[in-house]
Amino acid sequence: MQDPYKVLGISSTASDEEVKKAYRELAKKYHPDNYVDNPLADLAQEKMKEINEAYDTITRARKNGAGGAGGYSDGGGYSGGYSGGYSGGSAYQSANANYAAVRSAINAGNLQYAEQLLDAAPTRDAEWNFLMGSLYYRKGWLDDARSFFQRAVSMDPSNGEYRQALNMMNGASSPYRQTGYGPPAQQGGCDMCDMCTAMMCMNMMCGGCR
């Protein structure tokens, strides 16, 4: 097994507080929420597992007094907290058997097969549009994906899954969009930047309370 301190990117003399901080930062980075429907989700999951294991190993070793600067430990309340997040794929189910097959093909990364199934589907209903959107999202064709999600939402506005997908495309939950410099002439009022800042501040507060 790899050196757990190396995995967390800290030295073995780091204090318990530093270990926890390093762990939290990495866990935030590889959090399943950042890799929803992402073709690289499996790699992020592996990373997450590595980090969890490293953190568990360190806290356990420190608890047993087998080293560490502090000599005490507050018991790793964080450990393993995220590990469940990746398993199981989508929580939503399809009533239609054909669509269920499409969902599992998309989840497995078998995009060609999913496309064949969708092409052959007899109806073009809201779920069909949603699945086409998911398929294009996985391919990286984000503009087409957004159009399909929009169509799915307009055909079935009450469906939470479709709305969630469209919101994701609109960047509502993006962890990466920061307040950059932007173009030289900024307009006043509540623009995307303000909203992003508000989101980020809220996110930070949530992190602090945890």
Binding site: K29, Y30, N34, Y35, N38, L40, L43, A44, K47, G140, L142, D143, R146, M169, N170, G171, S174, Y176, R177, M192
Partner: peptide
């Protein structure tokens, strides 16, 4: 256009972290 480009940026950042 902005939305679609920034969706790409999100995926870029997620990939970069790995």
């Amino acid at each position: 256009v902005r939305q679609t480009l920034f969706s790409s940026v999100d995926l870029m950042c997620a990939a970069f972290e790995l």
